[in-house]
Deep mutational scan, measured.
Amino acid sequence: MQAFVKTLTGKTITLEVEPSDTIENVKAKIQDKEGIPPDQQRLIFAGKQLEDGRTLSDYNIQKESTLHLVLR
């Protein structure tokens, strides 16, 4: 499924993900596309910070959801 990641600069990245993907996995995909190390990434969805060990389905993130990427 497709999900979108919006950065603070307003850029939107499109990712191909599965509901079973972990947040860690998603961060690795963002690193592949953008070169941002996962340890600098914080992903926010519905106002919550997403934890590495959880999956997209844990957070009820469905296709075409938009996550927000904040860098630390």
Rank of each mutant, 00 (worst) to 15 (best):
Q62Y: 11
K48R: 12
D32C: 08
T14D: 05
T66Y: 08
K63A: 15
N25L: 13
Q40Y: 08
P37N: 08
D32M: 13
T9A: 12
L69D: 00
I23F: 02
P37M: 08
L69I: 07
P38K: 15
T9R: 10
I44Y: 15
R54L: 12
K48I: 15
T66D: 05
I13V: 06
P38N: 07
P37S: 09
I30Y: 02
L43Q: 01
T55H: 05
F45V: 04
K33S: 11
D32Y: 11
L67V: 06
S57F: 10
K27G: 01
L50K: 00
L43W: 01
R54I: 05
I36N: 03
I23S: 02
G10Q: 04
G35H: 06
S57C: 05
A46F: 09
L8D: 13
I23K: 00
G10W: 04
V17D: 00
S57H: 10
P37D: 09
I30M: 03
I36R: 02
P38R: 13
Q2L: 15
A28F: 12
S57G: 11
F4I: 09
G47C: 06
L67M: 09
R42L: 15
K27V: 02
T22H: 04
T9E: 12
P19C: 07
I36V: 09
T9K: 10
M1D: 03
T66P: 06
Q41T: 05
K33M: 13
E24Q: 12
V70L: 14
E18A: 13
Q41W: 06
D58C: 03
A46P: 01
P19G: 08
E16M: 13
K6G: 04
K29P: 00
P37Y: 06
D39N: 12
T66M: 10
L50A: 02
T22A: 04
N25E: 12
F45N: 02
L56E: 00
R72H: 12
D21Q: 04
F4Q: 05
I61H: 03
V5A: 03
L43A: 00
F45M: 07
S65L: 08
K33L: 13
V26S: 00
E24K: 12
L15K: 00
E24V: 07
L8Q: 14
L69W: 02
V17C: 05
Y59C: 02
I23M: 03
L67A: 02
K33H: 09
R72C: 12
V70I: 14
D58Y: 15
T55E: 03
L56W: 04
V70Q: 10
I36A: 03
T22V: 04
D52T: 05
E51D: 10
P37T: 06
L56T: 02
L56P: 00
K33P: 02
I13L: 09
F45S: 03
R72D: 12
Q40N: 10
D58A: 06
V17R: 00
I23Q: 01
D58H: 11
E34C: 12
L43K: 00
L71I: 12
A28L: 14
I30Q: 00
V70P: 01
I30L: 07
L67T: 02
R72Y: 12
D58T: 04
D39E: 13
N25A: 14
S57N: 11
Q41N: 02
F4G: 02
T7P: 04
Q41Y: 14
K11P: 04
I36L: 06
A3R: 02
K33Q: 11
K29Q: 10
L71V: 11
V17S: 01
V5R: 01
D52K: 04
D39F: 10
G35Q: 06
I13Q: 01
K6S: 09
N25R: 14
N60C: 06
V5S: 01
L50M: 09
E24T: 08
S20K: 08
N60T: 05
Q62G: 15
I30P: 00
A28I: 13
K33N: 05
K11T: 08
